[in-house]
Design a protein around this nucleic acid. Structure first.
Lengths: 131, 131
DNA sequence: ATGCCATACGTTATATCATAACACAATCCA
DNA sequence: TGGATTGTGTTATGATATAACGTATGGCAT
């Protein structure tokens, strides 16, 4: 944390909105909800999101072009690999990580001299309540 | 296999083009290259891609909004989970699968009564030659 | 304090990716 | 034979993302 202290106005607005949401939001969702705070252009959102991803406060869900506030900023910055389970019915996103998966992937990369920069792991499906 | 026999004209065109390519292509890349074969609209491409994904001849790379021909249609249809390593410099995509990763994720899902429909696992980074 | 650098901001315009809606054609097979 | 399913073609539109430009702000070494 403490990172949250360093955020600029736009970054804070986006982060607060995303944290308050109960699920993922697209950049344009965020823009719509932040117009009354003075934000007017997509780039303002995308730039804030870019920074927030850099400092691990926000994750991008590649499979649905949207964004979520990180569930536990403190932990995951260390663990590296973050995975998501996304319910296609109710939209709930569960964030988790798995050391075994992580090390298997690290092994794969090491064996092939592949240098990973970012990994995305997303499971689409139906959650307990919706299954 | 044999599946390739059942493809329609548009599906074949898209699959052939994608198979001949040495890397991923976007839907609009495909459209540009298939105009001379008579394809004119994005939907013709997207519909073909949709079918090709259903029969496991093509994969979608979520992190880059593009598509690749499946490296080994016969095997992967069984294995279920397919992972990709994507070089951000040269664009090369390596397809692989890992039973351990797969079973860990299956366990996670089972424990939570989550019913997976599709999983995407993509590692961005630099390949051996580009690292 | 001055000048420089890195970072963020605001704005307009544009690029890129994807689907809705409608009408028509081909095929299967009950 | 006629209904269901799947594929097609077309136009229009929606949704997501970035380029390019200029300005402003804050740190910090001189």
């Amino acid at each position: 944390m403490a990172q949250e202290q360093n955020l600029t106005k736009n970054q804070s607005l986006v982060f607060e909105k995303l944290s308050a949401a109960d699920g993922p939001m697209s950049a344009y969702d965020l823009l719509d909800e932040l117009r009354e705070q003075g934000l007017k252009a997509p780039l303002q959102i995308y730039r804030a999101l870019e920074k927030l991803q850099e400092v691990d406060l926000v994750h991008r869900l590649e499979s649905m072009n949207s964004f979520v506030a990180c569930a536990q900023p403190h932990c995951h910055a260390k663990t590296g690999l973050v995975a998501f389970a996304i319910c296609e019915k109710c939209g709930t996103v569960s964030e988790f990580s798995d050391d075994v998966v992580q090390s298997r992937l690290a092994d794969w990369a090491t064996e092939r001299n592949f240098t990973p920069t970012k990994t995305s792991l997303e499971i689409r499906g139906l959650c307990q309540g919706c299954g």
